[in-house]
Simulated scan of single mutants.
Amino acid sequence: MSSAVATAKTRASAVALPASATLPWLLSALVVGLLIYYFLGIDEGATSVFGNTSVIHELVHDARHFLGFPCH
């Protein structure tokens, strides 16, 4: 009965990706990460690079405290 059940063994193989294919993704991830870090950690509202509005600061206010960034 066990011979009737065919078991297929597959092996995972590594795929080599050229640097030209991964570099745009890595750079995009870096830019997005730096923007998130800026808006969460550095933007203070009054000293914002994007104008004298505190809208972004108020949107991420609780996340700033949760992550340990001071803002007062």
Rank of each mutant, 00 (worst) to 15 (best):
S28L: 11
Y37M: 02
A4N: 11
V5R: 05
A8M: 06
Y38F: 02
A6E: 10
H65Y: 09
P18V: 03
S48E: 04
A19Q: 02
E44C: 07
R11Q: 12
A16T: 11
V55T: 09
A14Q: 12
P18L: 06
F69W: 10
T22A: 10
M1E: 03
A63T: 06
L26Q: 13
I36D: 05
A14S: 13
H65P: 00
F39Y: 10
V15N: 10
L35A: 13
P24C: 05
V31Q: 04
A19F: 06
G45L: 02
H72F: 09
V32W: 01
L26W: 03
E44S: 15
A29N: 04
F66Y: 10
V15K: 15
S28E: 02
P70K: 15
A63M: 09
V60L: 08
L27Q: 14
A16N: 12
A63Y: 10
A14K: 05
G41N: 10
F69M: 14
F69L: 08
A46K: 04
F50T: 01
A14P: 03
I36Y: 03
H61L: 07
H72R: 14
H72A: 12
S13A: 13
L34I: 02
S28Q: 06
G33C: 10
L35Y: 11
G45P: 04
T10C: 15
F39D: 00
L23Y: 03
T53K: 00
S13R: 15
A16G: 12
M1Q: 10
R64T: 05
G33D: 01
S54P: 04
A63H: 04
F66K: 12
A8D: 09
A29K: 08
F69P: 00
L59E: 01
L67I: 08
T10A: 14
G68P: 09
G33R: 03
F39T: 05
V31Y: 05
F69V: 02
A12L: 12
L23M: 08
I56C: 09
A19Y: 01
G41D: 07
L67R: 04
L40Y: 04
A63W: 10
T47Q: 14
H72L: 09
A12D: 14
F39Q: 01
H65K: 05
N52H: 03
H61I: 08
P70W: 13
V31N: 06
T7Y: 02
L40F: 02
N52S: 11
S28I: 13
P18F: 09
L30K: 03
F69Q: 06
P24S: 05
T7E: 07
F66A: 14
A6T: 15
V49E: 12
D43W: 13
I42N: 10
G51D: 05
